[in-house]
């Protein structure tokens, strides 16, 4: 197997002082897409936020395409007698650098920038690309024809589905090398959901590897190669697409037969 694009070893993090997930290790091979499935409130989103640097890792390491993303060492002390300008102001992991390296995180239920128009949002979405070739404006507009119609609308007047489309479009224009999608279809109407799922499938078919959280096992099965089960902040199972049971089967694995 070639070098992995993403390798996570012994990662723990949470919201001070509560540790949300502990000692997570996983590897994503080049070209591989993975899915994460698990009940709400078990640390999936927190894990992804740690991957993209929004939350500082407490311990462990994240290596993306051979580049270490978090600064080594345990979580630093915040006591004043240890005051150190660099330690206080610099993050142990910088989300800007993560994005610029090409690990792009499309957040769950992303509200984006309520007072910016779709066009303005997309115009600043090429920041992370840094010379890598991302999707162009015309490409994302042909993927999501609705966005072209809504070009001059403020994000706050868009529907949930349209916002999610802007979010994914902004992610694609950031020239991702690995795209993280956190429940992109959560709470959408069936019609919009189908539109978005089709678009994500199109993205997947361009060869872009994806990390996908979703509750829809059938949709996961279309996108991913490997599925990780998340339970109480730990990985409780790993299976290939072929081994994946249906939704009830997964619930039985997570909760036992009596759920």
């Amino acid at each position: 197997m070639s070098d992995p694009i993403l390798s996570v070893r012994g990662l723990s993090s949470g919201y001070d002082p509560i540790k949300i997930f502990r000692n997570i290790s996983l590897t994503v091979a080049k070209g591989e897409s993975i899915g994460i499935f698990g009940p709400n409130g078990h640390g999936k989103t927190t894990f992804l936020k740690t991957l993209s640097g929004l939350i500082d890792p407490w311990s462990g390491e994240i290596v993306f395409d051979g580049q270490r993303l978090n600064r080594p060492g345990e979580r630093g002390s915040r006591k004043w007698r240890n005051f150190n300008y660099d330690a206080v102001t610099r993050r142990r992991m910088d989300p800007k650098q993560v994005a610029r390296a090409g690990l792009i995180h499309v957040q769950q239920g992303n509200l984006l920038f309520p007072e910016l128009t779709v066009a303005e949002t997309l115009s600043i979405s090429t920041t992370a690309a840094r010379g890598r070739k991302g999707w162009s404006l015309t490409e994302v507009q042909s993927l999501f024809p609705r966005l072209a119609e809504r070009n001059d609308h403020k994000i706050r007047f868009l529907s949930g589905g349209e916002r999610q489309m802007v979010s994914v479009a902004a992610g694609l224009m950031s020239a991702p090398r690995l795209l993280i999608l956190d429940e992109p279809t959560l709470g959408l109407s069936p019609k919009i959901r189908a539109e978005l799922c089709a678009a994500i499938l199109t993205v997947k078919e361009t060869g872009l590897p994806i990390i996908l959280i979703d509750q829809d096992v059938a949709f996961l099965g279309q996108i991913i190669d490997t599925l990780y089960l998340f339970d109480h902040g730990r990985i409780s199972g790993r299976m290939s697409r072929e081994e994946m049971p249906d939704h009830d089967g997964l619930m039985a694995i997570l909760f036992g037969d009596q759920h």
Binding site: S52, K96, A99, R100, L111, L112, T121, S123, I124, R130
Partner: peptide
Amino acid sequence: RPGRAMRAVSQNREAAQLLGLN
């Protein structure tokens, strides 16, 4: 562009960081 980025940063710090804005 920097002006728009400033507004983006003020409206949603997290989303701005994820887009690679400094």
